[in-house]
């Protein structure tokens, strides 16, 4: 049983480390703050969740260590969208022009009244 848990831990921790590194590379490579926030969101959600999942298998059964890991995971899960939304909204309000095409012609996009 310990063997299976060790293998699962290795898998999740290595995958989480890989995603954290990819997210950090993305923050370096991508061009401006709006696209970088996607890479940072990747670190916040998937990288941390996988590493925490890997640590949970090493907690040694149902105890307070497992509960605290779950609490950290839940907390990051709920706060990460709030802080990234606050960040892009503050950047937009400060006059940063996103490097983006206008997508209002995409199928299903909402159009302002008066536009075709």
């Amino acid at each position: 049983m310990d063997m299976i848990f060790d293998i699962l831990s290795w898998f999740f921790i290595l995958a989480g480390s890989a995603f954290v590194l990819i997210g950090a590379i993305g923050v370096i490579r991508l061009p401006e703050v709006f696209t970088r926030s996607h890479a940072a969101g990747m670190v916040d959600t998937f990288g941390t969740a996988l590493i925490l999942l890997g640590l949970m298998f090493q907690a040694g059964g149902f105890n307070l260590v497992l509960v605290k890991l779950v609490m950290i995971g839940f907390f990051l899960f709920f706060t990460s969208p709030v802080s990234s939304h606050a960040l892009v909204r503050a950047a937009l309000a400060d006059g940063a022009k996103p490097l983006a095409e206008d997508g209002s012609n995409l199928e299903g996009a909402y159009k302002e009244k008066g536009e075709k």
Partner: peptide, 16 residues
């Protein structure tokens, strides 16, 4: 992110 040419196509839109 890992693709060498970084083929992003950022787009902004509104939805209901």
């Amino acid at each position: 992110i890992l693709s060498p040419k970084l083929n992003i196509s950022p787009v902004m839109f509104k939805t209901k």
